[in-house]
Amino acid sequence: MTLEAVGIALLGAMKLAGKLVLIIVPLVTLFELLRHLPVFRRVGEGVDPLMRGIGLTREAALPLFTGIFLGIAYGAGILIRVAQERRLPSRELFLMGLFLATCHAVVEDTLIFVVIGGNGTVMLGVRLVMAVCLTALLARLWRAGRGTPGA
């Protein structure tokens, strides 16, 4: 193990970290700027038909879109607060959870893998299609008012 090898490794690591920082700082800044726009706060109204298709109501729109764009860990504050304040029924919470489990933080996740050479359309497309299909399927199998799957 030579000093040169360490140098090459450090250089590669710095390059990668630099690329990631260049994505993260503008992205987080943009989110912070957009977060307070009225469009984002009233996002529920326009997407009603889409939401119904996957078994969700307008009440779930804000936490759902927060999760899709910000991610579960970063959007945790909003997710937890809205879910508790609006008292979403457990069926909706599970459907929303299933959608987000498959498809969240889509901008950041996709970008960082595109930077290292992945195909963004494939990664984003497959996740989105799977999330919609799985949630819509479960919403049809599990009608409102019945028990919890996996309980």
Binding site: I80, A83, L93, G97, A101, G150
Partner: peptide, 13 residues
């Protein structure tokens, strides 16, 4: 986080 919203976190994982 999912568990804190009231969803079934373990099963979802």
């Amino acid at each position: 986080v999912l568990r804190s919203t009231g969803a079934r976190g373990g099963f979802l994982t």
